[in-house]
């Protein structure tokens, strides 16, 4: 199964990538995906998560074709 992972703003600069695709065979949580793309770093509590462009949690399970995004607290307006 393939999913797309996106990073935004300061987090994109820290991770060093805008977007990546990962392959996996079992069902994965958002937290596991973070560990896979950051070589097992702990997902900081203040980092926000979206799955398919809706806010989600670290425990959300993703499926084939999903888009997962990680980003810092928002600062619009």
């Amino acid at each position: 199964m393939t999913i797309t992972v996106k990073f935004f703003a300061s987090l994109r600069e820290q991770v060093g990538k805008t977007e990546t695709q990962i392959e996996f065979s079992d069902s994965l949580t958002v937290n596991k995906i973070w560990q896979q793309v950051t070589a097992n770093k702990v997902l900081p509590k203040h980092i926000l998560v979206a799955v398919n462009q809706e806010y989600a949690s670290q425990d959300t399970t993703v499926k084939e074709g999903d888009e997962v995004a990680f980003f810092p607290p928002v600062t619009g307006g």
Partner: peptide, 27 residues
């Protein structure tokens, strides 16, 4: 609407200061 936008809408500000240094605004 403005409070929801400011606290949850995915926008991020990066500011350039007078000395040309650049920083992301902390949320």
């Amino acid at each position: 609407l403005i409070e929801e936008l400011k606290s949850h809408a995915p926008f991020w500000k990066r500011e350039t200061l007078q000395n040309n240094s650049v920083r992301w605004v902390k949320g």
